[in-house]
Nucleic acid binder design. Structure first.
Lengths: 114, 114
DNA sequence: TCCATATTTCGAGGATAGTCGAAATATATG
DNA sequence: CATATATTTCGACTATCCTCGAAATATGGA
């Protein structure tokens, strides 16, 4: 991931409404959620949410597909993975022990049987 | 980590200059870098950089200490760890296989002997 | 076709963020 | 103490972001 893309992704997530929407989609998994359902859960006007979803989409953090009258949004796990990799990739430049906590933190999540 | 803190951290990182400075500090490790050195490397006016460092500091992503005339900045790995945990913590709500790529991504870094 | 539903686009207002020179503060040295 | 160095604070300007109602677009059903 490049600096420009990373900044776009971080900017997209740096907003309470968008971050909430994104986490909601991450939880929703591959099925995703229709825009209207997200707006309802966040108690946000549809036009406001739409502009936020467009920002997440443009950053590559979400994808959308039409299903009838609804537009279903899903989280793009690949982009999220790339962002985390970018944030971590230089953590061991000088001292290997420094990034150990990061690795432990992600291991500690242990939410997925490998 | 709470939503408010997460948004502050993501906002702090959502800027090319600040993200570059932060990664520089992560690489620099516990020794950190003086503000002037960071400004020189980023070719940024001292006053501009200072306001950016204040934002990173306020978000808890960096710490500072005085050493003579210089002020040394270091990355706060604990806050970074908390942020990553927050971003990942709900990734397995419905389908465990979804967050497997994240775990693999962090494992693949394998830059630190555990 | 006509109407209801779902979502986006447009536009304008107010709010927030970024930039950087000048001045202020803190420290070291002669 | 006087001067040089390192950094921050202040202030003002510009630019970008956020919000959301109204109108436009797309779809499904009677």
């Amino acid at each position: 991931m490049e600096m420009t893309t990373a900044v776009a992704s971080l900017s997209a997530l740096a907003h309470a409404g968008r971050l909430s929407a994104f986490r909601m989609l991450v939880q929703a998994g591959a099925d995703g959620l229709p825009a209207g359902e997200i707006a309802r859960r966040l108690d946000m006007p549809p036009s406001t949410l739409s502009s936020h979803l467009a920002i997440l989409d443009h950053a590559g953090l979400t994808r959308s597909r039409r299903d009838g009258r609804s537009i279903i949004y899903t989280a793009d796990y690949g982009t999220m993975q790339g962002l985390l990799g970018f944030l971590l990739e230089d953590c061991c430049g000088g001292a290997p022990e420094i990034c150990a906590p990061f690795i432990r933190a992600t291991d500690a999540l242990a939410c997925c049987p490998s």
